[in-house]
Write a protein that binds this DNA or RNA. Structure first.
Length: 292
DNA sequence: CTAAAATCCTGGTGGC
DNA sequence: TGCCACCAGGATTTTA
């Protein structure tokens, strides 16, 4: 499941491969991959997805028309979004969600039928967006901030200091794990790294944010940065082949996981069996002795 | 305000 | 062997 470290790895690879390339053509194999302007950002108005059938074809042709012949000026990451800045000043954003994969080069046969979007490039290469579960989306917008503007701070930014973390934590009273998963609170952390970060910090996932002592806030801040940096160095976490980089290679951080999907196995620090609970429908793993 | 459930999705798995 | 419930979880929206 691509989170910050996986998306960072993808973006770094794409940069060396695609910056300066011109998009010569677009193939949309499944129209739902293209986010409608009202899909996100809509303030409360319920959108029925079936209702888009009436105007989806025009949106798709509009999408193709706008993107064709644009050059890729830059590729960057914001939270879990991949942002392509294009030559006419607009941006293409890709969110992989649960199962999305970006691939350059030969397509593994397994992914062929799941390819939802193909960008053809002026050097003959293709960038393919495969997504078995159809949860991923692409956005073509005048200003990327329209999509990523509501995200919380980047945890690895140089100017994201302990004081900044302590400040956004003020007056937050929810459970700390839910907060780490909230992209408006802090950007880029998903279920894998939320579990590992809380273990590294020695904090119980159900702790309320406003009960954290200053020393715990500091431990959490450093755990966030340490775990994410290490995971980037390991090129992300691959479970069941779910995440692969743009060349189809696996990450290595699964070897470093301490609690995730280790229910009943001994805590690597104290030997107590790891406990699994459900929090908001998500698997939540922790050591009942090391995390209080 | 927080929190849980529903929604979108499909492949894999375990029970019967 | 087949059928079914359920799990995996990112993000948003709805409901309590």
């Amino acid at each position: 499941m691509p989170e910050l470290p996986e998306v960072e790895t993808i973006v770094n690879d794409l940069k060396t491969l695609l910056i300066g390339r011109r998009i010569t053509d677009v193939a949309v194999n499944w129209e739902g991959i293209i986010a409608q302007p009202s899909d996100e950002l809509s303030q409360g108005r319920p959108q029925n997805r079936k209702g888009r059938l009436c105007d989806s074809s025009s949106s798709v042709s509009e999408f193709k028309r706008r993107i064709k012949n644009q050059r890729i000026l830059d590729i960057r990451r914001r939270g879990k979004y991949i942002i392509f800045d294009l030559s006419r000043g607009d941006s293409l954003l890709i969110h992989l969600r649960m199962a999305g994969q970006l691939l350059i080069g030969p397509c593994p046969t397994k992914l062929e039928s799941y390819t939802r979007l193909i960008l053809h490039l002026d050097n003959g290469q293709q960038l393919r967006f495969a997504d078995m579960r159809k949860l991923g989306r692409v956005y073509l917008v005048e200003d990327a901030e329209a999509i990523v503007g509501m995200l919380g701070p980047e945890p690895l930014a140089d100017d994201f200091k302990l004081e900044d973390f302590a400040r956004i934590l003020e007056r937050r009273r929810g459970r700390i794990k839910s907060l780490l998963l909230n992209q408006r609170f802090i950007a880029g952390i998903g279920n894998i790294y939320a579990n590992e970060i809380l273990f590294a910090a020695g904090i119980h996932p159900l702790r309320k944010a406003d009960t954290l002592a200053p020393a715990e806030i500091e431990a959490l801040y450093h755990a966030i940065r340490r775990v994410l940096r290490r995971a980037i160095a390991e090129r992300g976490t691959t479970f069941d082949g779910a995440y692969l980089d743009v060349r189809g290679r696996r990450g290595q951080y699964q070897e470093s996981l301490r609690v995730l999907r280790r229910e009943g196995k001994p805590c690597p620090r104290c030997g107590t069996p790891i406990v699994r609970i459900a929090l908001g429908g998500r698997g939540t793993y922790f050591c009942p002795r090391c995390q209080e």
